[in-house]
């Protein structure tokens, strides 16, 4: 499936991009993350949460397609 991945804040310094689409055949969010960690080794040491289609999910969640966002600690206000 094609997944759009969005990166925010300090994570964009590890990925050098804000968004990308990839074809991925894995099942779980954690498998996608492993894939991203091999692509962007610096990402592995960053603190972030994962949102799937704009809802925070644990990494053992099944990928449902569409949009995954990697969210570093919040700093609003």
């Amino acid at each position: 499936m094609t997944i759009t991945i969005k990166y925010f804040g300090l994570l964009t310094e590890a990925t050098q991009c804000h968004e990308e689409s990839i074809n991925f055949s894995g099942v779980l969010v954690s498998e996608l993350l492993e894939n991203l960690f091999s692509k962007y080794p610096a990402l592995k040491h960053k603190n972030f949460q994962v949102a799937q289609n704009q809802v925070l999910v644990p990494v053992n969640t099944k990928l449902s397609g569409n949009e995954i966002a990697l969210l570093p600690p919040y700093a609003g206000g």
């Binding site: 300090l10 949102a51 700093a75 609003g76």
Partner: peptide, 14 residues
């Protein structure tokens, strides 16, 4: 409201 904004809303600050 302010505490919820601080902890729940995905806003990032450089």
């Amino acid at each position: 409201i302010v505490e919820a904004i601080k902890s729940e809303v995905p806003v990032f600050g450089k």
